[in-house]
Design a protein around this nucleic acid. Structure first.
Lengths: 197, 197
DNA sequence: CCAAGAACTGAATAACTATTCATTATGCTA
DNA sequence: TAGCATAATGAATAGTTATTCAGTTCTTGG
């Protein structure tokens, strides 16, 4: 079997896992269910993943890669100001989760539990993301548009916390709002607290 | 058996459950383990709780009661300004979780998963809490110290999000910092974004 | 077209554990 | 203190499910 076809099947299994786990939770989803939805036999799962838990880790890694790559691009851009970069990261975060409710559920609900199992391992992906935001805060201080006494990592955690709560709130609410529509008010409030006076 | 002694035993079981679940997760903790730590037989658990899940709900309710009662007191106080009230709620939130790491772990990690099972049920406790914060924002607007265009519920979610992220970060970090020490910088940043200019 | 290795299958296995309930202990009242 | 109700026990039950592996089907290079 060609490498591409193998990769495609792996993706299909992962997609099935995202869908089922989002709807029924990690412990409420059996390997058989995932296999059935992916259209493979139970045993086949184990040709692609060492265990059920490894599947969850893979979901996290695949999503985090998408996330980080795009955020990185925003941060690296030359010529853009820190305020603008921060707004775009906020918008990106809310858009990516807002586009895929199943993935959002897994991020906001299932990983929280898994973090307990994986502990700092999974958090390391978040740490990189926080560092990225912190860099933007640092730039803003250098530009003189953010308060000189803002602690970059602390500020990054505040930003992440707000985004995270928005996402969780959206996931748990039944209303049919767009998550991305909250980007502007979030940016406004955060920038209000950050700007040099 | 007297009602007090019964209540005391119920509390002992709940304490044992908090300890074990915080350390090993809900699914990593067996009813037998909780029973052993509480010093009772497995079957005894079921004289006090209908099921394992009900134990978790009881933990949530017991803690939320403590939480809400104190927050309510702050909000109800006459003569205090909205800025001051907000600062005190921030401090309260971080103190209560900071005083009891096991409880904090359950709140920040285990309940996230359980929310999936209990869905909006558990969130309703949070909803009341959010409403309380929103009321303070409203007062601040009436006093003229907060921006006139601040949306109270949205702002409450932002505040909660920041507090929540601080708590999660503290729970997952191994460092021996005090959670409550972040109250001041959190308040500063939030008030900076909220104040009328 | 045909090995032969790669990929896949799914029933069987091997735990694991929430909950029950027949039995025993305890405490209270008269 | 006897008798009765209440409380506690913990071994047995009943069900669940991740993982394995012996056997089958597909692919492909010569």
């Amino acid at each position: 079997m060609s490498a591409e076809r193998k990769e495609a099947k792996r993706e299909r299994i992962l997609d099935a896992a995202v869908l089922e786990i989002a709807r029924h939770g990690y412990y409420g989803t059996t390997v058989s269910t995932i296999a059935r939805r992916a259209g493979v036999a139970d045993g086949t799962i184990y040709l692609y993943f060492k265990s059920k838990e490894e599947m969850l880790v893979s979901i996290f890694e695949r999503a985090m890669q998408l996330f980080s790559a795009q955020a990185q691009q925003i941060v690296d851009e030359r010529g853009a100001g820190a305020e603008d970069k921060l707004c775009r990261i906020v918008a990106l975060h809310l858009s990516l989760l807002g586009e895929d409710r199943d993935l959002a559920v897994i991020f906001q609900v299932e990983f929280r539990h898994t973090l307990h199992v994986l502990e700092l391992l999974s958090r390391s992906g978040i740490r990189d993301y926080l560092a990225l935001i912190a860099r933007v805060v640092d730039e803003g201080k250098a530009e003189g548009v953010f308060k000189a006494d803002a602690d970059p990592l602390f500020t990054a955690k505040v930003v992440f916390g707000v985004l995270d709560e928005m996402a969780t709130d959206w996931v748990l609410s039944r209303k049919n709002t767009r998550l991305a529509s909250r980007a502007e008010p979030v940016s406004d409030l955060l920038l209000g607290g950050l700007r040099a006076s």
